[in-house]
Amino acid sequence: MMETIFSNFALIIGTTLMYSTPLIYTSLGGVLAENSGVINIGLEGMMIIGAFAGATLGYFVGNPWIAFIGAGVAGGIYGLLHAVACVSFGANQVVSGIAINFLGIGVALFLSRMFFEGATMTKSIPLDFKMPRPLNGVFPDGSFLNIILDNQYATVYVALIFVLLIWFFLYKTKYGLRLRSVGEHPTAADTLGINVIRIRYFAVIMSGVMAGFGGAAMSLAIVSNFRPTLISGHGFIALAAMIFGKWKPQGALLACLLFGGSQGLAVFLGQFNFEISSQLISMLPYVITIVVLIGFVGKSAAPAADGIPYEKEHKY
């Protein structure tokens, strides 16, 4: 009895980690952009570009790491578009983000039809070329850790490392402090000699890179190809997780875990022959998120200059 409880518990943790991973990368991207003062509603589109680039490179190159990094680069280049609009041209950041989303799905499917003989679904990556599972078979069969970690792809661990890295960067380095100061009070930062433009470019491009990783964590690990509905709302959920996590990397991590956890719970409950419909169980993650927001989190405040384009008043 005790043992089944333990193994079920482990199973839920395992699925939690799996489902949270793409969200963690992407919402970290959101954390970077928004802490520098640029709203990024385009995370969904950047994730789509990353997922497509990852699956395509994975299929043609056959190395998951090259594909993963390539997905980040693609996401970063795509993020540059948002950066140019928002930082250099003072765009309405929400509008630009929505445009990024439409362009993302359009460009990904357009290119997919070009590369894969008119199909909107990329060809599957052979099993050997998918993300490796580093702890596969390390722990004894059926043990607690084995159930949790046996099937986890490398992307899961990389995501957790990124949380640590970005937390360290934002709160323990001078560059992180500069990035946050640009998001809080760009004029003050500017008078202190901080290059607001350069920092915002960096942050938005990095947010594209992270969202690209998030997409690839989906198309290279959880599944093994790209298809039109692969990223359907994940970017928006990551955005919600970032707001939910109060614009902090550790908060975003927890929010993503909560979301992945309730999804894990839904999957777990789905395997029993309940009287409850599986459709109702599928609602669970979303209902839990709202309940948690209502009950426990309370108001959250964005960085003060989030969403406001920065312009120098005079150029001498």
């Binding site: 609009a85 630009s96 439409f102 499917l109």
Partner: peptide
């Protein structure tokens, strides 16, 4: 003509993109 109809999403996205940056067109 076997051309990807997704080009419409690209057109719509580009329109919205240009709308977000009135400054560029003015510039």
């Amino acid at each position: 003509m076997r051309a990807p109809s997704e080009v419409i999403s690209i057109v719509i996205g580009s329109i919205v993109f240009f709308i977000s940056i009135p400054k560029l067109i003015k510039l």
